[in-house]
Amino acid sequence: MSRRQIILVAALVLAAGAIPFLVSDYRTFQFTLTLVYAIALLGLNLLTGYNGQISLGHGAFYAIGAYTAAILMDQYGMPYWATLPFAALVCLVAGFLFGLPALRLEGLYLALATFALGVSLPALLKYHHLEKWTGGVQGIVINKPDPPFGLPINPDQWLYLFTLAVAVLMFVLAWNLLRGRIGRAMIAIRDQHIAAEAMGINTAMVKSLAFGVSAMYTGVAGALGAIAIQYVAPDSFNIFVSIVFLVGIVIGGLASISGAIYGALFIQFVPNIADEISRAAPWAIFGVFLLVFVYLMPMGVAGAVRMALARLARKAQNRSQST
C-alpha cells in the first residue's frame, strides 16, 4: 500500500466513525448491521473468492457465532466483548472440521454439501435436548450493552463504534493474510490446484485452514449481529441467510476486500427500499441482480470501481503528457 492509499483508508475509517453522530439511532443501527455483514462477507470471500471453494451454507457459521455469543451472555453472564474470541474459536474449529471432509469435494458437490448444512441447521438449533442452552424455538433474548467509562453517547452509537473497531481489525488481518504466503497459496489453489500442489503447497492444510478462517470471520460477524439485534432464534438463520451472503459477495465483487463493504451496503439497504413495494420484492431484486451481475459485471461493484479509477488515471496521465 502506498502512502496515499493509507491516508485514504484512514480518512474513510474516520468518516465511518463520524456516522453515528450525524444520523438517527435507527440508521446507526442499520450501519452497525452493515459492518456486521461486511465482516461476514469478507469471511465468505476468503473462501469462495480467494480459495475457490463454494459455500452455500455460511449462514450456519453465522448462526453458530450468534448462538455462542448469546449462550455465553445468557447462561454464564459473560460481558459482550468477551464472547467474540469464543465465537471466533468455536467457528474456527467448526469450520476446520467441516472443511476436512469437504476437502474431498469439489465445485458443485461442495456447494451441495454446504447447502445441506445451511438448510438443516435451523432444525438442529430447535433440537429439544439442546433447548436448555438454545432456548428452542423461542430463542434467546440478550441485553444491549451500555457504553463503558461513562462515555456521553447512547448504546446504539457505542455499539456502532465497537463494531467498527472490530471490523477494522478484521479487515487489516485479512489484508495481511492475503498478501502473505498463505494468501498466495490460497489463490494458487483456486487457479490451478494441481500446479499449486506440485510447487509444494500443502493443499489439504491450506484448504481446511481457509475454511476455518472463513467460518471464524462469519462467526465473529454472527456474534456481533446477535449483540446488535439482541435476539437469536432458529428461524432467523434459515438458508436465505446463506443466500444473502452469496448475493453480497457476487454483487460486491469476488476476490476483493473492498467488495465486502459494497456488498454489505447492498444487502442491508436495498431490501429496505424494496420492502415498500412488496414483501417479495427484495428477493426478486436480489435474484435479478445476481443474474445481471453474473452476465454483465462478473467482477462486481469493486471490479467496476477499479476499472473506472484506472480509466480516470489513464486520462489524467494522457492529459499531463499532452500539455
Binding site: 469462495t48 475457490g52 463454494i54 452455500l56 465445485g107 458443485l108 456447494a111 443466500i243 452469496l246 457476487v250 469476488l254 412488496s278 414483501r279 417479495a280 420484492a281 427484495p282 428477493w283 426478486a284 436480489f286 435474484g287 435479478v288 445476481l290 443474474l291 453474473v294 462478473p298
Partner: peptide
C-alpha cells in the same frame, strides 16, 4: 461458481415471484 450463482438466482426469483 457462476453456474451455482445462476441456479441460486433462479431459486430466489421463482420463490419470490410465487410469493408475490
Amino acid at each position: 461458481l457462476v453456474i451455482v450463482v445462476v441456479f441460486i438466482a433462479l431459486l430466489v426469483i421463482l420463490n419470490s415471484v410465487t410469493g408475490w
